[in-house]
Amino acid sequence: MTSLYEEVPAEVPANVPTRRVTVTVNGEKRTVDVEPRLLLAHMLRQALQLTGTHTGCDTTNCGACTVLFDGRPIKSCTMLAVQADGHDVETVEGLATASELHPIQEGFKQEHGLQCGYCTPGMMMASKALLERNPNPTEDEIRWALSGNLCRCTGYQNIVKSVMWAAEKMRAEEAE
């Protein structure tokens, strides 16, 4: 499970100073002892075993590691885990309920918004942030909001359609 880049162990040697951080992740309070240099992405993946958040480029370019931090999208490879202390983090695992996919996930399924799926968690979280601010985005607005997320498979067309699909479904649910 451990990838090449995830070498900071979640369990820290006894002589290294750690900090206790409490983060609300997908609505649940989680407390972890971390080294200050541990990245948020690695805390989510290793300490909390939430491996839905992917690390792609590891250089703040690709957006695969995008999560919501107090409701706004951030690249979790570019934030320290200690900085999340007392804050609210939402990952792709927070989208679906036990029985039902989130409309954004359903949209990606319906419109074939993924091929290899590596960028998908980041795409979905960035899309969620967009739709919370703008429930009825144009194609241009979707492309703008996802311009910090790279996909090497789809050519983006189907991702845009997926978000359109989700927006429509969420508006319909809102109207009910």
Binding site: T60, I74, T78, G148
Partner: peptide
């Protein structure tokens, strides 16, 4: 500046 996600931070 940068991209929309970098701009949030």
């Amino acid at each position: 500046v940068a991209d929309p996600i970098v701009r949030t931070r």
